[in-house]
């Protein structure tokens, strides 16, 4: 890690330091540093990654601590929001912004969560299938078998934003922080 990053996360729990270090190795230093969180803007293919000092306990599909939030533009119709939450409680849907975040302890599993959420929203699978596929693919990943769904997006994220502003009328992409897109993201 850089000296600056070391200083920011020096008093963080070891697992949080490790999450920050792994993210910085892949995407470069964070764009925003705060005492409890680091933010990378446009770490392609993600829209935003946040590494949190403080974790939340999550037991699905096996006990771990959620720390890495990965955000992407994805429209989730209001009738699908409950299914997404039932599939995985660590996926947040902000319908107005047209954003979805998956939070886990490793980025690869966030790709998997978002890919299966997309499958759920598009009707390819139901909640039970999504949970079963997630369980099996996470187990395979932990056994050292990377798969397409844990390596990148299996769909094309909305390039012009997915904000709905309510009443399902799309609006122009909202103003985002003026940070130039990074080119350091590893190809999906």
């Amino acid at each position: 890690m850089t000296e600056t990053l070391d200083r920011v996360v020096g008093d963080w729990p070891e697992e949080a330091q490790e999450a920050a270090r792994r993210t910085a190795e892949r995407y470069g230093p964070p764009d925003e540093t705060m005492p409890r969180r680091l933010v990378w803007n446009h770490p392609l293919p993600w829209k935003r990654i946040v590494v949190n000092r403080d974790a939340s306990e999550h037991h699905f599909p096996e006990p771990h601590q959620d720390r890495i939030e990965s955000w992407v533009d994805l429209e989730v119709p209001r009738e699908s929001a409950a299914d997404v939450a039932a599939f995985n409680g660590s996926i947040r849907v902000n319908r107005t912004r047209g954003e979805v975040a998956a939070t886990c302890h490793v980025e690869a599993v966030n790709f998997l969560a978002v890919n299966l959420a997309h499958d759920l929203v598009s009707g390819r699978i139901g909640v039970d299938e999504a949970r079963r596929e997630y369980t099996e693919m996470v187990a395979s990943h932990l056994m050292g078998r990377p798969q397409a769904y844990t390596s990148g997006f299996a769909f094309e994220p909305a390039s012009t934003g997915a904000g709905t502003a309510d009443e399902d009328r799309p609006v122009a992409p909202h103003e985002v922080p003026t940070v130039s897109a990074r080119g350091t993201g590893r190809p999906a």
């Binding site: 939340s56 699905f60 096996e62 099996e136 187990a139």
Partner: peptide, 25 residues
């Protein structure tokens, strides 16, 4: 926090299907 769904039975089944021992994640 939801519930754990990865169990020993699943690990054994996957290990068999994948044809090898666990490798580091």
């Amino acid at each position: 926090p939801d519930e754990a769904t990865i169990d020993d039975e699943l690990r054994d089944r996957l290990r068999h299907a994948l044809g090898g021992a666990d490798r580091p994640a």
